[in-house]
Design a protein around this nucleic acid. Sequence first.
DNA 1: TGTGCGCTTTGATCCAAATCAACCGGCGGC
DNA 2: GCCGCCGGTTGATTTGGATCAAAGCGCACA
Lengths: 248, 248
Amino acid sequence: MSASTPIAADGPFVDPSIDSIHPCRACPVRSLSICAALEGEEMSRLADIVVVKNHAPHQTIFAEGDEATDLFNVTGGTVMLYKLLADGRRQITGFLFGGDFMGLSTGGTYAYSAEAITPVSICRFPRRRMEQVLDDYPKMQRRLFNMASNELASAQDQMLLLGRKTAKEKLASFLLTLSRRAVRRGQPDNPISVPMGRADIGDYLGLTTETVSRTVTQLKTASIIRLLDGHKIHIADRETLEDLAEGI
Amino acid sequence: MSASTPIAADGPFVDPSIDSIHPCRACPVRSLSICAALEGEEMSRLADIVVVKNHAPHQTIFAEGDEATDLFNVTGGTVMLYKLLADGRRQITGFLFGGDFMGLSTGGTYAYSAEAITPVSICRFPRRRMEQVLDDYPKMQRRLFNMASNELASAQDQMLLLGRKTAKEKLASFLLTLSRRAVRRGQPDNPISVPMGRADIGDYLGLTTETVSRTVTQLKTASIIRLLDGHKIHIADRETLEDLAEGI
DNA sequence: TGTGCGCTTTGATCCAAATCAACCGGCGGC
DNA sequence: GCCGCCGGTTGATTTGGATCAAAGCGCACA
């Protein structure tokens, strides 16, 4: 599953020896990640410096304020990024899935903490060496810039959500975002997998556990969603959910 | 004041003819902006494509959903960026001052609207041509990436504020941010200029006009700030304000 | 110099979501 | 199989900030 243990070639046209030189070639999320811009030599430059690591649930990957020595690419599982206030109040700034990138920093330290929600596998790139690769391959630099721009756009959506949406609108937006992101990873748009707990959802949406639970119940009672086994939610009435999310 | 009307050389070592080739050389915010990374030829490439424009208060510079044809650099005045919900609820996602950059987009359209709060002067770079310049000068690409990373970090701070801070903590954070940004522009850290109205502050902090007003009054009554003429606020007790902002 | 408009402040009341509290139900360990 | 724990749900009550309402107060303009 991870890039450090290349999977056997799954088609006759792929030379297995290539995989041993470019373990990233077998990466299940390459097309989604920073690595999508790369071919041959560029990819091997990245493969040379990457370190693959697995993390168990609740494990901290890095903490806010740590020296920002690495950049990361999530290849599988779910990660959350969060910031804390002095008294323990927490704001989750993002959930990351396979293909997502993290570790951008300013001022030499991470601006947020990262923790595994499910078992997670992560490619870790030493920042120093990564910067050299970026200098040599402007295409990668461009790609990274585009990813940062996308993140910025969703951060702005999240500000609108946090500042101006009601609890019901927040939940609706959250579920639709999960669905759309699942599609980008090549998964079905319905039902959606919701691996994080009510408390995490609350800390992402600026709500309490209880309000998240009540609001999910409301959506369920209104037949807009159905709760399935295995942390899955079926979107029964997407149109209503979309209207809710847009504040209509 | 604007880059289109170069100011006379202010020292004996500057050849005035250079200014006419590089109008940006006289730009008062060059050291803060995307242009800081540039010298001689690179700057003249930018100068060739830049269009300088002024905007009156309340004028819309671009609207969410417009085709994203340009990138912008604010050289003077105050701009706000905002997103709207269907029923008119508004979230201001940022205030921009001299040296700040805007117009990054994904999917070909602007993700937010931009409106002048005070009289504003703005350098406008056609995106198409800008991208060519970026391709030729990786240093600029890098600079732009760093600006996006910084914006991302402050977006995350803003999420923490919107999701988890109280009205008093929000106001304290806001005033300190204004003060710190004034310093970065070479202005005094105190008193701070607050050019936007209570309604705009509210829509930035996820509060109503009335709550902003009441909270400012509280801070004033507690002798933490003093209101001065001309939309200025004096920070009388910075330490208490900082503690408030951090939720202590 | 008066007038009117827009912004701000202040007051009274309301309400969505937080808090406080109890209970349910599944699951892992003994 | 029983117990204890943890996550989720539901209920009762509280509350911070919203909403509704009405003055102040400049400031532009006639």
